Simulated assay, not measured.
Amino acid sequence: MKILSLNTGRVHPLLVEGQSHVSGIRKSPREGRVAVAPLGLEGDEQADLSVHGGLSKAVYAYPQEHYAFWQTVRAQARVAGWNEPLAPGALGENLTLQGLTEKDVWVGDVLRFADCDLAVSEPRQPCFKFNAVMGFNQAAKLMSQSGWCGFYLAVLKPGSLQAGEDFALVPGPREVNIAELFRAKMRRA
């Protein structure tokens, strides 16, 4: 398991169905080591702290394994740039991971890096801004249906991270996994 890309972004205007909203969903890859503090990665911002960010949602991780699906559905929807590969961070994630998907991770599990520990806290719930960055209005619905939501992480041990870094998964209490919790939350939404 490893970090393929470490991504951050600043809050910028985002046009959604003709209206301007502020958002930090657009992330770009970073080079070198990046500091990780209790509220997230150095240089990263969130616009709406009621749904993103904070201590329990300081870092957002997304499996690279799902990128091919999003590339395909964008091509079918013929969104602008559909024929170009999605860049890491395109789904708003801070960590583009390889080797760990929602079905394999549980609330309370710890991702142990050389200089940092991050605890799995909850699944991401898609919003209208996700539709805007993906380029079509069914993106949030497809995330809900597929369960390929990624997951939020709380910072247990601050430190630093870098793309290419391997990590270990330290099992938590194993009471509910991210895929199950996401399905339960989507049924209630």
Rank of each mutant, 00 (worst) to 15 (best):
R174E: 05
V59N: 05
F151G: 11
W82V: 02
Y62L: 04
K27A: 04
P38Q: 03
F151I: 12
P29V: 06
R74Y: 10
K103P: 03
G135K: 03
R124G: 04
L39I: 01
W70E: 09
V133G: 00
A61F: 12
K129C: 02
G172A: 07
R33G: 05
P29M: 01
P85Q: 07
Q162I: 13
F128G: 05
Q71S: 08
F182N: 06
H21E: 12
A132N: 05
R10E: 14
E165G: 04
R78W: 05
R33C: 01
L86F: 01
R183N: 06
L97M: 10
A189T: 03
P63M: 08
G54C: 11
E165P: 07
E180D: 15
V36G: 05
L111V: 13
Y67R: 07
Y152V: 13
L142C: 05
H21G: 08
E31D: 14
F167W: 12
K57Y: 11
L142I: 08
G99T: 10
P13L: 12
S56N: 08
V176L: 09
E102W: 08
K141T: 08
P13A: 15
K185Q: 14
N94F: 15
Y62C: 03
G147V: 00
F136V: 04
E180C: 05
E93M: 10
G108K: 14
V51K: 11
H66G: 06
F130A: 03
W82T: 00
V79E: 09
D115M: 07
P158F: 03
G172H: 03
M143K: 00
H12T: 15
L153I: 08
A87L: 13
V155L: 11
V59D: 02
R78F: 04
I3N: 13
A80E: 15
P158E: 06
F136G: 09
H52I: 04
V155M: 05
V51G: 04
A90S: 14
K103T: 10
F69A: 03
S28F: 12
A184I: 00
S23Y: 06
R10D: 09
V133R: 00
S56W: 10
H66R: 10
E165I: 11
R26S: 12
N177H: 10
S23M: 09
F167L: 11
E93A: 05
T101E: 15
G53F: 04
A140H: 07
M143T: 06
K129L: 04
G32L: 08
A37H: 11
L100H: 15
F69V: 07
N177A: 00
Q138E: 11
A37K: 10
G18V: 02
E65R: 15
G108L: 14
P38M: 00
L156R: 15
A35K: 09
D166V: 07
N83Y: 08
D44M: 11
N131Y: 07
V36M: 03
